[in-house]
Design a protein around this nucleic acid. Structure first.
Lengths: 197, 197
DNA sequence: CTCCCCTATAGAACGACGTTATATAACTAT
DNA sequence: ATAGTTATATAACGTCGTTCTATAGGGGAG
C-alpha cells in the first residue's frame, strides 16, 4: 500500500483565530463574493469542517467578522487626537480611514446578508462603537463647545452623516474632485449645526 | 403519442417588463437571497433563459433593478412639496419614505455585489437623482435661504447625511425611540449648518 | 510511557445556484 | 402557407453551503 498521506492537524485552540484571520484577509482581498467556506479554510490551512465546528456555518463566520469589525471601528474612533470638540472633529477622518482600509468589511457591517443574524456579542460591540462617539459628544457639550442637547441624538446624527459619506464614497457615488476635502467640509457642516454660533 | 403539453409563449415585447416587475416583487418580498434566476422567471411566467436573452445574466438583471431604483428615487425627491428651503427640508422625509418602502432595493442601490457593474444608463439615472437634490439646494440659495456656497458640495453633504440615516435605520442600528423624529432632527441640523443664522 | 477519547481530517454526497447547450415549438413577417 | 426568428423545456456543468462517513492525529489519565 502507498505511504499514508502526511496529514497535518492544527491545534484546537488556534483554529478559530486562524479561520477568523483568514476570513478577514480573504474578504479584504477578494470581497464578499470570494468569501467561500472552502477558500477561507484553505487560506487558514484548516479543514472546511472547522467553520462548522467553530462558527456553526457561514452566517456564524460572517457574524464573527462583524463583531471584530465593530471592535476595530471603536478603536479607530478612540484613536482620534485632541480634546473636546477638536477630538470629535478629528474622529471623522479616523472613521473615514477605517472605512477605506476595510471597504468590504465596512460594507458588510452596515448591509449584511439576510441570513446573518448579528449575535449578542456583535450587538454589544456595535453599541460600544456608538458609545465611543456619544462620549466624545458629551465631552464637547460639557466644555460648552456644542449646543446643549441629548448627546445620543446628536451622536446619532453625526454617525449618520459620517457613515453616509463613507457609504457613498465606497460605492463610487461622488461628484466632487477631492473626496477628503468634501468629507472634511461635510463633517464641519454637521458639527456647525450643533455648535454655538 | 400523448397529447402535446400546452406550451405557452409570452409575446416578445412583454418579456423584459415582466421579468423586471417580477424581479422587483421578489426582491421586495424575499430580499436579495431570494432573488434567483429561477424564482424570478417563475414569478414572471417566463423561461429562465429569458433573463439571459434580455439582460445577459443575473448581474444585468440587478443592474436594471438599480437603474429603475434611481428613477423611483428621483421621483420621490421631486415629489416633495413646498418652495425653496421648505421643499428641500421636505425632500428628506420623502427620501426616507422611498427607502423604507423598498428596503432591499435601496440597500442594493448603495451596496451592490462585486460582479454588478452599473451600466451607463444606471449611472445617468443616479446622477439625475442627485441633480434633483442639487436643484433644490440651488433654488434655496437663490432665495438667500442658505449660505452661498457650491450647491454640489452642499447637496453631497445633505445626501450623505440622509442616506446614512436611512442606511442605519434599515440595518437596525438606532438608539432613539422615535425614528421619524430623530430623522427630522438630523435633517434640520444638517440644513441648519448651511443656513443663515 | 501507554492507552483511550476527543476532535480535526479527507472525501463523498446532496440540493440549489448561475450558466450554457440542445432540440423543439410557437409566434411573426412575408 | 412558408420561412426565420425566438421562447420554450430539458439536461448538463461547475461551484456553492451543508451534512455525513470513516480515519487518524494529539492531549490527558492511568
Amino acid at each position: 500500500m502507498p505511504a499514508a498521506p502526511a496529514r497535518h492537524r492544527t491545534p484546537s485552540g488556534d483554529i478559530s483565530a486562524a479561520l477568523l484571520t483568514a476570513a478577514e484577509d480573504v474578504l479584504d482581498r477578494e470581497g464578499l463574493a470570494g468569501l467561500t467556506i472552502r477558500a477561507v479554510a484553505t487560506e487558514a490551512g484548516v479543514a472546511p469542517m472547522g467553520v462548522y465546528n467553530r462558527f456553526g456555518g457561514k452566517p456564524g463566520l460572517i457574524d464573527a467578522l462583524l463583531s471584530r469589525g465593530f471592535v476595530l471601528l471603536r478603536e479607530a474612533i478612540l484613536g482620534a487626537t485632541g480634546d473636546g470638540l477638536e477630538r470629535l472633529r478629528n474622529s471623522g477622518p479616523a472613521y473615514r480611514e477605517f472605512a477605506l482600509t476595510h471597504t468590504h468589511l465596512y460594507g458588510l457591517m452596515f448591509n449584511h446578508p439576510d441570513d446573518v443574524a448579528p449575535s449578542e456579542e456583535t450587538l454589544v460591540n456595535a453599541v460600544q462603537s456608538f458609545q465611543a462617539l456619544v462620549d466624545l459628544v458629551s465631552d464637547a457639550m460639557d466644555r460648552d463647545e456644542l449646543i446643549p442637547a441629548e448627546p445620543v441624538e446628536v451622536a446619532q446624527s453625526i454617525w449618520a452623516a459620517v457613515h453616509g459619506a463613507m457609504s457613498l464614497e465606497i460605492v463610487g457615488i461622488g461628484f466632487t474632485a477631492d473626496r477628503a476635502a468634501t468629507f472634511q467640509r461635510m463633517n464641519d457642516a454637521v458639527l456647525a449645526g450643533f455648535s454655538r454660533s
